[in-house]
């Protein structure tokens, strides 16, 4: 199954998305990277790296993020990742809708490309 990583400045946001998705899909490898390691609002490259690793497999990993530094930290996490980063992709998508669609899709054993096709219409242009 494709792993899904959710990055937000806020821990509550990613927990909320996971909670919503769990109504439809429970067994998908979803990892959360919300807030900083000392509980502030913000994003944390170590948390992001750990999250990617925890759901990493040959099926690939899709990374969803909310805004601003979340994207930059996700990119840096990929730069430093020991695993094969070509299997990990940061996604430009409406955060809630895209992530939930991807989680449900992954639970239906869809491939990374199939999931990306399903959420292609949800692009927000947040990856300049």
């Amino acid at each position: 199954m494709v792993g899904i990583v959710l990055i937000s400045h806020s821990k509550k946001i990613v927990e909320g998305i996971q909670e919503l998705a769990a109504q439809m899909s429970q067994d998908v490898p979803v990892a959360l990277a919300g807030g900083t390691d000392d509980g502030r609002l913000g994003t944390d490259i170590n948390k992001i790296t750990e999250a990617i690793r925890s759901v990493y497999s040959d099926d690939g990993v899709l990374v969803f993020f909310d805004m601003g530094s979340a994207y930059m930290n996700a990119q840096m996490a990929l730069d430093f990742l020991d695993e094969d980063s070509s299997k990990v992709e940061i996604i430009d998508s409406a955060f809630v809708e895209g992530a939930i669609t991807a989680i449900v899709d992954s639970g239906l054993n869809k491939s990374m490309d199939e999931i990306k096709a399903d959420i292609a219409s949800m692009k927000l242009g947040k990856m300049p």
Binding site: T36, G42, T43, D44, I45, N46, G68, S69, M72
Partner: peptide
């Protein structure tokens, strides 16, 4: 690793 905002990266 420790800044938290965009100024970290």
């Amino acid at each position: 690793a420790h800044v938290g905002g965009a100024s970290g990266p």
